[in-house]
Amino acid sequence: MITDKYFYHVVKGWVVEMIVKVENVSKTYKNGVKALQNLSFEVREGEIFGLLGPNGSGKTTTINCILALLKYEAGNIEIFGEQMTPERYDIKAQIGYVPQQVAVFNELTVEENIDYFCGLYVKDKTKRKALVDEAIDFVSLNDYRKFYPKKLSGGLLRRLNIACGIAHKPRLIILDEPTVAVDPQSRNKILEGIMKLNKQGATIIYTSHYMEEVEQICSYIVIMDKGQVVSHGTKEKLKAMITLGETIEITLPNRNEAYLELFRKLPNVLDCFYKDRILVVKSGKGQTNVPNVLQLMQEHNFNYENIYSSLPTLNDVFLEITGKELRD
């Protein structure tokens, strides 16, 4: 059970409402696959909560359990402090869901699609019209109002998918890998939009296997693997948990195995290896090792094409905890 989050919010000076509480949830599919094992976490109001994990780690299963689309054999899920069941339409009315697959009607235009999904929550036609206009404006689909989904590019379709999920202005928005197969420009637009929604007051649950995205927008992150929470916290806290402090990558004209031993002798170096022609030097926490690396190369007259230093990423965190990469 994650408990330190509560203190995190108290330290900030105010106690916020708990939006989602997942408690010891286990789910086994009929084919015997254990999708979730004693999964627990909490999502607080105003957060952009990131569920990060490789494909098949149980992110979508978690979302489906939260939304009462899937049954689970053990545990408990509460939303807005109440038990979530398939019949709790009052709770559902306050949730917006953006599924991993684009789920829209090909026979309806952009505007009609958003109106339909908004209509599942809002009956008043005038109010709905204003909400649809706002959603179209929000995802910048004004020029495509009368377009049918088949005429939209992948990025525009994803934006339509999001608009359908958020038009009714929900309190909690769940986005399941909304940027899969999207071009960088559309991806940035989507991420900016999510942050804007959050600023407008919505709590966001965001699942992805793209660590850069999660790092960019999420205020709290749960890293999942094999249906379990492997680590959690803010990105800073997660990175602080590991021994890695810095990764230096040197692109060389030729690969020379003898260099490895020289670099390994440098202070605070944890590991040193080749990735094609790139020599990777991983150092522990503390001062940067870049000056030492440069000095060594100067002393031995090493030729190099470029040198690049980076701080640990969430992939490094995942790698150190599980022994495998996020995209494995």
Partner: peptide
């Protein structure tokens, strides 16, 4: 996907 979206609605 559509059914799930409907189910999450009212």
């Amino acid at each position: 996907d559509i059914r799930r979206r409907n189910n999450i609605g009212r």
